[in-house]
Amino acid sequence: MPYRSIAFVASRAPSAQEALTVLGARHGNVPQHLADVIVALGGDGFMLQTLHETQNIGAPVYGMNRGTVGFLMNAYGDDDLLARLDNAEQEVINPLVMNALAVDGSMHEALAINEVSLLRAGAQAAKLRITVDGRVRMPELVCDGALVATPAGSTAYNYSAHGPILPIGSGVLALTAMAAFRPRRWRGALLPKSAVVRFDVLDATKRPVMADADGQSVRNVVSVEIRSEPDICHRILFDPGHGLEERLLREQFV
């Protein structure tokens, strides 16, 4: 479809702000709720922020890289934007929902497009019990942390933790451990997208753990439940031949 009403958003990086000025002057810059498409100028972190902030608007997001990392972004160019938007291919991804219970009894909910991670917050390793769909699968995992990643996020923190890269349409989540001590070198598991994963923190006072969903952190958690949210759909636009499926494949042959 033709995208003519564009809302531009940009990170604070000087290059992103310069691009915002140039593109806004050339194409106009409408309020987000009136836009056919949102163009995000920055890096992957800013793209995630934009997707979270605009999830209730309905307009797709087209990113152009003006940051240091650009896995979710297209190459920057200021002379053929309308043609690129008209020819763009759409990917639809669903986020994870994190429900975290803290030591003080407070509940915290957050969405994550990439991953939900649990990390030790003290000098000692974390002790976690892992339950999948109501069944205890690992009574005790001693580790620096663990995470659940979506296919879109599988090349981020998950990959750095030696987790698998997941095809975008695989219907699979990655459960990956960081520096597992017991079971020794346990790397994790592949789970169906419909799975509900629960982490219980064992000895939370002596071995504190924090939970994080795309940068939204909760300290001193005692349990965290994670599931995919199919009712929330993030629409991301990519230049032809440069979509997530191609990028995920390319990452495996570097």
Rank of each mutant, 00 (worst) to 15 (best):
S223K: 01
I93L: 07
A7C: 04
Q49S: 11
Y76S: 09
V254G: 13
T155F: 07
P151G: 00
A146D: 09
Q124G: 14
A179W: 10
P2A: 13
G122A: 07
G70I: 06
A146L: 00
E246H: 12
T155G: 03
I232F: 04
R120K: 15
Y76C: 03
K206P: 07
T155K: 02
A100P: 01
Y157S: 08
D200T: 15
L101N: 05
V9H: 01
A121R: 15
M107R: 03
T150V: 04
D78W: 13
A204V: 03
I226P: 03
V148G: 09
M1N: 14
N99M: 08
N74D: 09
V209C: 04
R235I: 01
H162I: 14
G43T: 04
G122P: 10
A40L: 07
A88E: 06
G45F: 08
I93H: 01
G122D: 03
R247A: 02
P31R: 07
T131W: 11
G45C: 09
G243S: 11
E109H: 14
A19F: 02
L244I: 15
I113Y: 00
N56Q: 09
N29E: 09
I165L: 00
E245W: 12
G163Q: 03
L202H: 01
I57V: 15
S106L: 00
V209E: 11
N94T: 12
D200H: 09
M64A: 00
T21W: 10
A121E: 12
I165R: 06
L147E: 08
Q252H: 07
Q90R: 15
L173E: 02
I113Q: 08
I93C: 00
L118R: 13
P151W: 12
R120P: 13
V97G: 07
D203K: 02
R26H: 01
A152H: 06
A156V: 00
G163W: 02
I6K: 02
V92S: 10
M73A: 14
A213M: 05
G215T: 06
F46Q: 00
V136N: 03
G105W: 05
R247D: 10
V132G: 03
D133H: 06
F71T: 04
R137G: 09
R120C: 14
P230L: 00
R66K: 12
R120D: 15
Y3E: 03
E115P: 07
A213P: 08
E246R: 15
R247W: 00
G241M: 09
Q252Y: 13
M98L: 14
R4V: 04
L190N: 00
P95T: 07
Q49E: 10
R4Q: 12
I236M: 05
N87V: 05
R227N: 05
E53I: 05
D104Y: 05
V218S: 07
P208W: 02
S170D: 13
G163A: 09
H33P: 14
V221N: 03
R185W: 11
V30T: 01
E53W: 08
G63L: 08
D86S: 15
L173R: 07
A156H: 10
G163P: 03
R187Q: 04
H33D: 14
L141G: 06
N94F: 10
E91Y: 11
P167C: 02
E91M: 11
G241L: 06
L147H: 06
E251R: 15
E245F: 13
P164W: 04
A75E: 01
P2W: 10
V254Q: 15
A125L: 14
Q216R: 14
C143G: 05
R247K: 12
S217R: 15
R235G: 08
